[in-house]
Design a protein around this nucleic acid. Structure first.
Length: 294
DNA sequence: TTGGTCGAAAGATCCCAAGG
DNA sequence: CCTTGGGATCTTTCGACCAA
């Protein structure tokens, strides 16, 4: 490249200034017409053009060749330029739409933050919640009287047992084969093969079945899940075991009060009363199913 | 006057087809 | 297979022209 530059400079220096010509408008018109007819004329055709066109009579065929070369080059550059301009217009229009959408969403967020603050304020005034809105749990094992959510509908042992049996039956009916319809929750992997996920089954209006371990899951995998309790409860901001009851099949029923982290920083944390049924089934498989009582 | 742009010209390099 | 001629492409230089 350096050699090319040097030789080009040397050639340019040697070039006679008188060689530089500017074609007349008539010549340019003629050349443009010829270019329109044929952008790549052969050597023979170029000589023929010079003979046939009077305004080009005194132009060297070599100059004609160079003119066509440069003309093709210019056309290529113009096409590329117009292509980039069209692309730029499209991107600008897209950018405008995205800016408008962003603006609209920002306003929506502001409105939701405002509403959130408004409802928090009213809840605090009603004396039903803690004054602490930090990361500290609002649930403290019966010492804290400022419980957010209402108690379960039927917290009696018989009522809990009934709900637990119902939940287990429902869960087992869904947790066989691929019958479970898994719904991904924020920050969690979808699908029954995921470990430590929370899934909410479809078709159960108002009822959430929280599953951690499926029937038929390998015992080693279940043990692995149970050992890694922090992961198992990673979405859980706080949890309180309010009551524990023995159940059939070596199972237990626990009444839980849970507070889950908010899916986004702008949304409030969610509070649940949960019923957890834990049981060892035949074959050593473990089933843990939970049901919201809210 | 100066800086930018356009156009003409030329060199270097690569590729391809034709001919010996 | 090698050489040769020509085209394509990229790059550079320089003159002309124009607007600030």
């Amino acid at each position: 490249m350096v050699a090319a530059r040097e030789s080009a400079a040397a050639a340019a220096a040697a070039m006679d200034a008188s060689k530089y010509v500017r074609y007349t408008p008539e010549q340019v018109d003629a050349l443009e017409r010829l270019y329109y007819e044929c952008p790549k004329p052969s050597s023979l055709r170029r000589q023929q053009l010079v003979r046939e066109c009077p305004v080009l009579a005194h132009v060297d065929p070599k100059q004609i060749k160079v003119w066509f070369q440069n003309r093709r080059c210019r056309e290529k550059q113009r096409k590329e330029s117009s292509r980039l301009q069209a692309l730029n217009r499209k991107l600008t229009a897209m950018n405008k739409l995205l800016m408008e959408e962003n603006d609209r969403l920002q306003k929506q967020v502001s409105q939701l933050v405002y509403e959130n603050g408004y409802y928090r304020h009213h809840t605090n005034n009603a004396g039903l919640t803690t004054t602490d809105t930090s990361c500290e749990s609002v649930v403290t094992s019966g010492q804290n009287q400022n419980v957010v959510v209402p108690p379960p509908r039927d917290a009696s042992p018989a009522g809990l047992m009934s709900i637990a049996e119902e939940t287990l039956t429902e869960f087992l009916s869904k947790a066989t084969g691929t019958a479970v319809e898994w719904v991904q929750m924020p920050g969690m992997k979808p699908g029954p093969d995921s470990i430590g996920i929370i899934a909410i089954s479809h078709g159960c209006a108002g009822v959430a079945a929280r599953a951690c371990g499926l029937v038929g899951m390998e015992p080693a995998k279940v043990a692995e899940i149970l050992k890694d309790r922090p992961l198992w409860l990673r979405d859980c901001r706080s949890m309180e075991v309010v009551n524990v009851l023995p159940a059939g099949s070596n199972g237990t029923i626990e009444l839980l009060y849970m507070q889950l982290y908010a899916p986004t920083t702008l949304a409030p944390a969610r509070d649940f009363w949960m019923l957890r049924y834990t049981s060892i089934l035949d074959g050593g498989s473990l089933v843990v199913c939970e049901r919201s009582l809210s």
